[in-house]
Design a protein around this nucleic acid. Structure first.
Lengths: 113, 113
DNA sequence: CACCAACGTTAGTAGCCGCTTTCGTAAGCG
DNA sequence: CGCTTACGAAAGCGGCTACTAACGTTGGTG
């Protein structure tokens, strides 16, 4: 449940600016320059954010001439919802295993490290 | 939808170690030292993580003698789920406003900054 | 070809963050 | 009172990260 893709997506949306970008292109395709106009940082900064979001699978890039259109990829957010859901379900089972065989932890202390 | 508490909780669970801690105390009350045993970092490091999680409203601390018991506060995760849900719903309305009156953006460019 | 527009990319920098070490504090025990 | 246990707090350090400035690249236009 805590695979690398979830971690990448989580770190991506942990940044306020990236969340704002994500909302901008949530249901509307926009070019990079247009996105950058909404913020008071330089365009390269926005480009880097777009790259991070793209690597996290939260964005889709489409090239049209010299322009590059960006659009949110909603499936990319699904793992995060799944993570939150499993936070309830699986952890219950994990807690039960601790309660039943807690002495087992002394044998392998660094299982979560 | 993007208030400070959501941002705080989001940054808290963006850290892998904090997620592991959160799962450990998801349904089981544990003392700080017991939590630290599961990781290969020092106890103060874990204490700092516990502080961050507590400030984010994701943890509850209960003192019992010299020990401090920690337990997950599930309501703290609710804003995150709400954030993800609104990522779909509200952004649709926002996109519609852009599509209908996009020229309005030139009047107030930095509305999202 | 030259020229410009729209981007991404690459140093380089300031600030944040997770960690360790050291010290301080509160509770229980004799 | 001293001693130990179980912690948090403060200071300092190394690595990451978001940013700017300069450069490179691709595509369109004449």
């Amino acid at each position: 449940m805590d695979d690398e893709s979830t971690d990448e997506a989580l770190r991506a949306i942990a940044e306020p600016r990236r969340r704002a970008i994500l909302r901008l292109v949530a249901h509307q395709e926009l070019p990079a320059g247009r996105i950058a106009e909404h913020f008071d940082v330089t365009r390269p900064a926005v480009s880097q954010h777009l790259q991070v979001l793209k690597d996290a699978g939260l964005l889709i890039e489409r090239r049209e001439g010299t322009k590059r259109l960006y659009r949110a990829r909603h499936e990319g957010l699904a793992p995060l919802r799944q993570f939150l859901d499993e936070m309830w379900a699986e952890s219950l089972d994990f807690a039960r295993r601790i309660a039943e065989g807690e002495r087992g932890l002394s044998d392998r202390q660094s299982e979560a490290g």
